[in-house]
Amino acid sequence: MPDVALTKKDFTSDQEVRWCPGCGDYSILSTMQAFLPELGIPRENIVFISGIGCSSRFPYYLETFGMHSIHGRAPTIASGLAISRPDLTVFVITGDGDALSIGGNHLIHTLRRNVELKILLFNNRIYGLTKGQYSPTSEQGKITKSSPLGSLDTPFNPISLALGAEATFVARSVDSDRKHLTEILRAAAAHKGSALIEIFQNCPIFNEGAFDIVKDNDTKGASLLHLNHGQPIKSETHGLIRENGALKVVALSGVNETDLVIHNAHDDDPAYAFALSRLSGSALDYVPVGIFRDVERAGYGSLVNDQVNEIIAKQGAGDLSQLLNSGDTWIVE
């Protein structure tokens, strides 16, 4: 623990923040800066590693160690660091293009290994830094500079993808909801292995209003299905029931509260969390937010270091001279 409790200011670097006015990244940054002090971890033991894209400027604005790396590869660099330095707390900051397009391979393999990384995926459903092309999460038919007649790609659902990749912690939040995002960050920090947090993030320049339905006071009450472990899954107007083995969103007026599905984030079977993830697609009529899945599995870095420590405990630390002199040897007089 640091000698004196740190504050938000302690985590704010002297760099001028250079996102566009109104960008959702501002509130995510502010939430993170306010959250970090409660971890009680000295600043020097926290590292933010990002790829390329608007979101990847994030590390510059935090008074911790940080690396703004190359497009899509942040999870690889972060993995090497986290595995070799288990004393550090390592965050990965990425976006929908960075994590799901150019870096898709690294994301899924990092999740399946369960490397001790907290991955924040800022999903704005557009390429911002390259000025407005469709991304792997853009809805089909989207008109952009590179798709003037409408994009033809079927989008990824980042939550479904992460669950398919054996992720042990998968959650979703919204940039503007500081309280909710803070809760999710807290749970992710407490999780032992990889944590993937999808954050709906508004890009006011190239995809303004993409998430209005889950942000506007008029609509969000109905749209947001809150996932709280041990609690019924519902929005202000709708709830989740099981019908013929499938999950279904129904109006609360038509069901008893006791018929609603009680959320179990610790369910070993990923099929349940996957079914939750399928409730929202490109259309955001009903969007589960919160922790889809949070199960225990040994972190990859601890497995790697345990293997090293066990062999040393069993056989003693390696002796270089013994190694070089091993095998068939002979003496020349």
Binding site: I49, R73, T76, I77, S79, G80, L81, A82, I83, H106
Partner: peptide, 8 residues
């Protein structure tokens, strides 16, 4: 990438 991260 992992090697560079470890070097870092």
């Amino acid at each position: 990438g992992s090697a560079l991260g470890a070097s870092y």
